[in-house]
Structure formats: C-alpha cells, structure tokens
C-alpha cells in the first residue's frame, strides 16, 4: 500500500541523506556513532531470516541486504574520518556519551517477555524492534546537548522518524484490508514515533517555517 511504500522510501532517503552528510562534510560532525552501531545490530538481528531462505519477495530481500550493507558502510565511513579528521572524530566521541547499556539491557528483557515464539529467530526479531524503537536516543541526546545541528543531520533524523510514523497508517490499512494486527510492531512503532514527536515539532517550526535549527 501507499503508506508502506512511502515509509520504505523515506527510510531509503534517510540513509542517502546520512551518506551524503558524511561525504559532503568529510567528517562525522553531529552524527552519533552509538546510534549508527545500534542500527547495525538492529538490522543484523531483524533480518536473520535471510539465512533461512524463506524469502517473502525480491523487494524485501533486496531492501534487507541494502539496510544491512549501508548500516555497516556508514560505520566504515565514520572510521575513515577517524584517520582523516581525528580532531573532529574525537570531538564527536566526546559528545556521544549516551550509555547504550540502558537501551540494550531493557530491549533484551522486553524481547524475552514479548515475542511471538521462544525461538532464536523470533527472540532476535523482537529484540530488534524494541531496540530500533529507542536506537535514535543517543543521536537525539547528542543533538540536545550541543543545541545545534547541521541541516542535513536534521533532514536525516526527520526522514528516519517519518519512516516509522508512516508505518502506522500502513498498519491501520492492513488491519482493515487483511485483518492483520501485528501487536509488537505496532506498539514499538508507536513508541518510536513518540520519541520523535518533540523533534518533529521543532523541525516543523524551525526548518519548514525557516530559521536555524536549535534544540532546547
């Protein structure tokens, strides 16, 4: 459906914007390495079903490889910046101080409690949706502490937030057309979108209505 396609396209756009940000500035200014590492973990645990070869569609399979590949590529680009621009890299690391154990631990526990089946594949899948819902926190934390962000960084976060927000009308659509109600995705998706809500509001006020981007 239209919402699902738009969501996936905005997810793709967010990654293109992120890669463009790193390429253009040749440094990692404003990007949280911790959030990016969490996304590698999210995609690697979610798409373990690639190994079972029970593929749903060519589209799904290609997108899964794309998300795993680009998330690892981002880490590689950021590590290159460590050599090319060590001062900026150190500056980023000094500001990227969110303790991710507070995201990893609860996500693992929630995955053990809420899952569709107590199998490795399903537990990893559930862990990935819980972790994804909070993976942006180190990035938002970094932004709120520095107070300012580059335009591309804000577009990246916006596109990434929009992706999960668009999944919500997709789930409503699927509930009415397929009677499908996938409670874990829906709950974590709502949580994820809620975490972006402040950001969306500031983005709307500052970026769309003009003016610089500044977080309180």
């Amino acid at each position: 459906n239209i919402f699902r396609i738009s969501a996936d396209l905005s997810h793709l756009a967010s990654i293109v914007i992120l890669l463009e940000t790193i390429r253009k500035t040749r440094q990692v200014d404003g990007i949280s390495l911790k959030t990016q590492l969490l996304y590698v973990l999210v995609f690697c645990t979610r798409y373990l079903d690639l190994l079972t070869f029970r593929w749903t569609s060519l589209y799904n399979t290609l997108m899964k490889f794309f998300f795993i590949g680009t998330s690892i590529y981002v880490i590689k680009l950021m590590q290159e910046c460590k050599i090319k621009n060590p001062v900026a890299y150190k500056d980023m690391m000094a500001r990227d101080t969110f303790q991710i154990k507070y995201l990893l631990g609860p996500s693992a526990i929630l995955a053990m409690v809420f899952n569709y089946k107590f199998t490795i594949l399903e537990l990893c899948w559930s862990f990935s949706v819980w972790l994804e819902s909070v993976a942006i926190l180190p990035q938002l934390f970094m932004l709120s502490r520095s107070g300012k962000a580059g335009t591309l960084t804000t577009h990246y976060i916006f596109a990434l937030g929009l992706y999960r927000a668009l999944y919500i009308p997709n789930w409503i659509w699927r509930y009415y057309t397929e009677n499908r109600f996938e409670k874990l995705s829906i709950f974590t998706g709502l949580l994820q979108t809620a975490l972006y809500s402040d950001f969306f509001y500031i983005y709307y006020k500052k970026v769309i209505k003009g003016g610089g981007f500044e977080l309180p």
């Binding site: 699902r4 996936d8 997810h11 979610r46 079903d49 749903t56 569609s57 799904n60 997108m63 899964k64 998300f67 569709y116 089946k117 899948w125 999944y167 997709n170 996938e182 409670k183 995705s185």
Partner: peptide, 10 residues
C-alpha cells in the same frame, strides 16, 4: 495465528 506472524515488513 499470532504464533506464526509473517514478518513481511522491514
């Protein structure tokens, strides 16, 4: 059923 949810979303 809920026990056999197909993860066809990304």
């Amino acid at each position: 059923s809920q026990n056999e949810v197909e993860h066809d979303e990304l």
